[in-house]
């Protein structure tokens, strides 16, 4: 590696430094917000108005436009949480710790939303609010993993020790992700098998699939926006004694 200050590696390192990430996130967030809102409008209009009713469930199936994206995101955010936790354990990178801490409550919210919307749909369709099958139970365990992570991190005063303790918990919990995904194939469950995420043609009509994918994109950008906003607050809080935060605050105040 050359000592040239502008190699890709040094640029990457600079991006990982809190002040430059804070600035970059501030520039990107308005664009992310616009894309997110556009996707939400298109996805909701397509899903609730344009998409045809289902041959069996009629109009009730439309809850998938919230349920499925939030269930996907509950697992995606946990994967991010586990990956950033591993990075923070191995490389002691402050930014990764901030991303992990900022992601957990957002992921917990998606998990909660997936469980509640599934329950609301389950009552009329299955005939019960809740059943202890492998899919529902493993998703509930995911919620407890998120809550456990948040409680552990909040219980330890020192920020970096807290992140490291939480990181171990997050990495241990990652075994739950394949269990959630494959539960409907490994065991017989009341929850149906995968519709879209399988190595085959999706078993959903294309006119119903497009709004679903738009909603999935909307949820991704919603996560990105919320996560970046929370990371910025984390950065300001952890760096509140540094010179750059000081100048930032005083220049805003004047």
């Amino acid at each position: 590696m050359s000592q040239n200050p502008d190699t890709w590696l040094t640029r990457f390192h600079r991006l990982g430094s809190p002040p430059s990430f804070y600035r970059l996130a501030g520039i990107l967030m308005p664009f992310i917000a616009i894309i997110c809102i556009a996707l939400f409008v298109a996805g909701l209009y397509g899903g609730l108005v344009l998409a045809p009713p289902d041959y069996q469930q009629g109009e009730s199936y439309r809850i998938i436009y919230i349920h499925v994206p939030s269930a996907w995101m509950s697992m995606f955010v946990y994967a991010v949480l586990a990956a950033t936790s591993a990075i923070s354990l191995i490389w002691r990178m402050k930014l990764a710790e901030a991303v992990a801490r900022a992601s957990a409550p957002v992921g917990a919210a998606y998990t909660f939303l997936a469980l509640v919307t599934g329950s609301l749909w389950g009552k009329p369709m299955w005939g019960t609010w809740w059943v202890w099958d492998a899919r529902l139970t493993s998703e509930l365990i995911l919620l407890f993993l998120y809550l456990g992570y948040m409680a552990l991190v909040a219980a330890i005063d020192d920020r970096r020790t807290a992140s490291r303790a939480g990181a171990v918990l997050a990495i241990v919990g990652v075994v739950n992700l394949p269990i959630i995904h494959f539960s409907v194939e490994w065991w017989n469950t009341l929850h149906q098998g995968p519709t879209v995420t399988k190595f085959d043609q999706p078993s959903i009509a294309i006119s119903m699939l497009i709004p679903l994918l738009l909603m999935a994109g909307a949820f991704k950008f919603h996560y990105l926006y919320t996560m970046l906003a929370r990371v910025r607050v984390e950065i300001l809080d952890s760096e509140r004694r540094t010179a750059w935060v000081n100048t930032l605050v005083t220049s805003k105040a004047s």
């Binding site: 289902d54 005939g127 009341l190 149906q192 519709t195 078993s203 959903i204």
Partner: peptide, 14 residues
Amino acid sequence: QVLAKHDETYMPPE
């Protein structure tokens, strides 16, 4: 108690 198991297929009635 009788519960209905839904399959993974979604399509319009037509």
